[in-house]
Design a protein around this nucleic acid. Structure first.
Lengths: 119, 119
DNA sequence: CGGTATCCCAGATGATACTG
DNA sequence: CAGTATCATCTGGGATACCG
């Protein structure tokens, strides 16, 4: 395939381009956590073990910029902020689930093997 | 899910674990290039536009260590080295193709939109 | 409750040149 | 043909602390 230029950057393959949207350690876990419906910030954070506020916020801002999530503020008491997937993010779910299944297969394979001793 | 520990590292999700095998800019393109059968080094390099020798070699060594590719040397004239996918790498192909399809969808979406002006 | 602001580092990537 | 070696760069991610 020929090069794809977007936002002044060159992408060599559809894979690389997809990863610019959902790559990194946290973006897929975020999307997966929102796959069953919108969540507010706190619930989202609880749904993703080990994520820090900084990383969660960074990733949410990135995803917003890319048109993958929407952020809705409800000015209630106490304040509420909800994150939801856009259409294009929902279309990534099959790919993310495929990756997740593969990860589980690898975990089984590795758990079943005797750990190699490093020389 | 609970944490998964492998090779002295903690993985928080199957996704993260899968990405430790096929993540990075070049590993999926490499696996995809080998999906239809073994290739020798030069052909593999030609199959992956823009990859440098350093990156291709680094990734191939990584993939070897993880048990994702095999490296076979044929002492002929001229020398020949063939790379092939292992079983566990072949199991990643559906996930990689799903990602690739998603990347293509995103490319269409972006190509069809009027580029936003950044303020 | 839902975030920001700093500072910092390791590791991933790249350019270039050289080799058995 | 199939790589290594070296050096430089850049950014993702983490620790910690603070804020409207």
């Amino acid at each position: 395939m020929q090069d794809f230029i977007h936002d002044k950057r060159v992408y060599y393959s559809p894979i690389e381009f997809a990863m610019s949207y959902i790559g990194g350690t946290w973006k897929m876990p975020v999307i997966r956590a929102l796959a069953n419906g919108p969540l507010r910030y706190g619930d989202l954070k609880n749904a993703i073990p080990h994520v820090t506020d900084k990383m969660l916020n960074t990733q949410l801002r990135d995803l917003e910029k890319k048109g993958m999530v929407t952020r809705t503020i409800f000015r209630e008491k106490p304040p509420r902020v909800e994150y939801a997937l856009t259409d294009r993010a929902m279309q990534s779910i099959p790919a993310i689930e495929a990756l997740e299944n593969y990860g589980r297969k690898l975990m089984e394979l590795e758990a079943g093997e005797i750990t190699e001793r490093r020389s």
